[in-house]
């Protein structure tokens, strides 16, 4: 069961130029879905379409199994969001900002101190938001998104403006919300490192196209697949000829000999063969791509 599902979602701002191109996003219920991509990849546009902030041009959006176009209000009742910069009224206090939304959601007023405490702002209820730092505004925006006890949280780069400690706290909070309250979370970021410790699923978007979608283990598997053995010898040409007879996938690239990731015994055997043929091996290593490199590789390809 998918909490969010988009089918053939495309969007253009200017005629003929697709900002989003056939996006088929599937966010499983109960997951923390990291929506990754560099700046300008189409993350915010996708999230704005999912929230109905942009008029849909092509494709279908389903949230909680219902069509967004037909059930917008009912869907929004069970959803909390934070898109880009915080939406807060600077001339009002933190509690007043929450109170004006409490009027709309008609949730208990007791939720106001609850959510303020949850995001670590318990003593700021009567402070004007214009006096808040960016990090505090970001936290208050999360409190706003949590006010109606949503089943789904959509957060667009929520750690913007937070210090390292704040980022860790935010991560822990989101994990807790997901595990204890079964809230599905869709979180966008342009930094994989920032959310890889948080997410269960990943979608990677670049230039409006979804390049990868799957679980975090799927991405880790992709990482292992792309790991290689690299060698540098005193005679790479002769080494390549020899290696090709033993391991046909061998190739030369940028002054290095590259082989797919092999069992340690096989690597030792190949090394022995080279040495026994009178070739000096200067460098022998397993090159493991980290997730960030996979992300960059996907994006750059």
């Amino acid at each position: 069961m998918y909490c969010i599902e988009t089918t053939h979602l495309s969007h253009q701002f200017a005629l003929g130029k697709n900002i989003l191109d056939d996006i088929n996003l599937q966010v499983p219920t109960g997951s923390i879905y990291g929506f990754l991509g560099p700046n300008g990849a189409g993350k915010t546009t996708t999230l704005r379409l999912i929230l109905g902030l942009l008029k849909k041009q092509k494709g279908e959006i389903r949230i909680f199994g219902q069509s967004l176009a037909e059930n917008r209000v009912a869907i929004l009742r069970k959803l909390g969001s934070l898109i880009e910069t915080p939406s807060l009224y600077g001339h009002l206090t933190a509690a007043e900002n929450l109170l004006l939304l409490q009027k709309i959601y008609q949730c208990p007023k007791s939720r106001i101190p609850e959510v303020l405490a949850l995001v670590g702002l318990p003593d700021t209820a009567n402070k004007k938001v214009s006096q808040f730092s960016l990090g505090m505004k970001q936290r208050l925006s999360i409190a706003v998104a949590l006010l109606n006890q949503p089943n789904l949280l959509i957060l667009d780069e929520p750690t913007n403006g937070l210090d390292p400690n704040g980022i860790i706290e935010m991560r822990e909070l989101l994990k807790r919300l997901n595990q204890e309250h079964q809230i599905t979370i869709l979180i966008s970021s342009h930094l994989l490192a920032e959310i890889e410790k948080l997410v269960t699923h990943v979608g990677i978007i670049h230039k409006g196209q979804l390049l990868f979608e799957g679980t975090l283990p799927d991405l880790v598997h992709k990482q292992q697949e792309s790991s290689r053995v690299s060698l540098i010898t005193n005679d790479n040409t002769r080494s390549l000829q020899l290696l090709k007879t033993l391991q046909p996938e061998a190739q030369q690239q940028n002054g290095k000999l590259l082989l797919p990731l092999l069992p340690p015994e096989r690597i030792a055997q190949l090394n022995r063969q080279l040495v026994q043929s009178g070739i000096d091996v200067y460098h022998l290593a397993v090159e493991k791509n980290d997730l960030e490199s996979i992300f960059m590789e996907l994006v750059n390809n």
Partner: peptide, 9 residues
């Protein structure tokens, strides 16, 4: 504020 207003039910 508009985006907040337009994502309320």
């Amino acid at each position: 504020g508009w985006k907040q207003v337009h994502t309320t039910p």
